[in-house]
Write a protein that binds this DNA or RNA. Sequence first.
DNA 1: CCGCGGTTATGCGTTTGGCGTATAATCCCA
DNA 2: TGGGATTATACGCCAAACGCATAACCGCGG
Lengths: 297, 297
Amino acid sequence: MLERIRSVFVVMEEGSLNRAAARLGVSQPTLTRQLQSLEQEVGGPLFERGTGGVRPTGLGYRLREEMLPVVRAYDAAWAEVLAHAQGRQSQLRIGYLGLAAARYLTPVLGRFQKAYPEIKLWLFDQTPQEQLTALREGRLDLALIGQEGASLGEEFYQHRVAKLGVRAVLPFNHPLAGQATIGLARLKGERFIVPSETAVPGRKRWMAQLCRVAGFRPQWLGETEAVGETFARVVAESGVSLLPDYLQMIPPPGIALVPVSDRFATWELTLLRQRGRMSPGCRDLVKWIGEAARGPG
Amino acid sequence: MLERIRSVFVVMEEGSLNRAAARLGVSQPTLTRQLQSLEQEVGGPLFERGTGGVRPTGLGYRLREEMLPVVRAYDAAWAEVLAHAQGRQSQLRIGYLGLAAARYLTPVLGRFQKAYPEIKLWLFDQTPQEQLTALREGRLDLALIGQEGASLGEEFYQHRVAKLGVRAVLPFNHPLAGQATIGLARLKGERFIVPSETAVPGRKRWMAQLCRVAGFRPQWLGETEAVGETFARVVAESGVSLLPDYLQMIPPPGIALVPVSDRFATWELTLLRQRGRMSPGCRDLVKWIGEAARGPG
DNA sequence: CCGCGGTTATGCGTTTGGCGTATAATCCCA
DNA sequence: TGGGATTATACGCCAAACGCATAACCGCGG
């Protein structure tokens, strides 16, 4: 059908079925029939036939006006898809959690841009849930996400980047706030602030699992939509929370971040990507992020 | 090809070739082969096949991201074309010469909007040349244009709207400026200002023709790009010009518009439209403009 | 351990839609 | 009144696409 429409453009340029057919590499009767079938589908004549050639009708002009940008967009989109298929990716879109970026993502970006100057990097600071839907909609090529993505191993490929420790989030005046490290069991009886399932899917399950191993069942004080809100409610409502130990993270005022000493208290930083072959640029980026995370850590 | 791409969307929604084939009304083997052929053209797999269904690859997601807006645009454009073919035009775009509009176009617009409230009228104040190219590109449905369009009867349909007289454009201090009417022959020896061929195609030929019938050959003083420029140069360089007798036209300062008395000195106001069937709205508009022009005139 | 229900892939015969060649019908112009 | 254009039609052929039947594979549960 698109080819028929393209033919219409050529016929309008040439003003003659003969010449248009020559340009299109088909015979004149074929072009005539193509046009007839298209006109039947549209429901009106696109050209007035004469002995000196063909002249567009208003409908023909209208069709070109409406369809020309569509055909151009189609060609551009098709070229993009072909480029992607051949690994000649022109862009790489990475979703990340603001907290994790500075330590694991930033150091690699300079190196990547030097090695692949032709690839434009897009960075999106998004919640894990946003990253997942963006991955599903194809708006993202990579997602730097936490352990919560483990359950999505079916849906996406995952690369383990680093295994982090855990820090307890305590209000500054909490009795344990001054400790260098604490065992998770000492948080028994505390009431936990947890991100909502829509904001950070799986986080609640992860925290519950840790508490279970530590020997108690956590009581939930409430759910939040952003990490800043978590901090605020920990302070305001004397709750506690658990957070992956992103290195170099500065605790906000009123908050103490105390490392959890238990060996089992870990959190996997994983990189999710869509199924299928990786382009060389993407492969290197994944590799380097892994090195940067494991090397100095 | 577009149908293949649509199929990809459905398969991504369903996650299963079986269900997608059912929704698409084709057999599963057919859908499998369609997908295979599309993947071969793209140059990479769009889905990973598993025993539990299919999962999109990055390439598949990318294809949907690129092609979904294209397909939507295609559908919208197609609907527009179909509507146009059935005469259910949602808009009517009219080009007009500023000078002629007030007298012939404005009175009809109110009536038209009452009769066809669902049709959006677009009015474009353009030079005749601009109107012609706009007609050719399908950006205009009607063009209110002068006799210069007569030579284009091959290319477009024309409706004679009115036959106007002619006025001589004279500087205010010209010896003939005070006359009630003049014969064209008295302009012999004057030097004429004429719009350029690109601004008002055919106008120069029309003026030459009138002068020839009046018994002399005009001398050209220069060409202008707009009617305001014509007035300015008539005053500044003591030239003369000829203008269709748009009724109710107010002469600008320094200019006298003297009616030409010769019977042959006429100018046809014509309405050009693209070839092919007219929608009812367009037909009425053309009819009413003609009535408005002939009735009181 | 085996079979059942689910998946996708493949082979085969048929159909149909589209193409090209040859030809007709028409018009403009010399 | 022909010659050189034009577009439309008739006919035969072929290839692409479809559906049916079946193969191959997987997971799960008895």
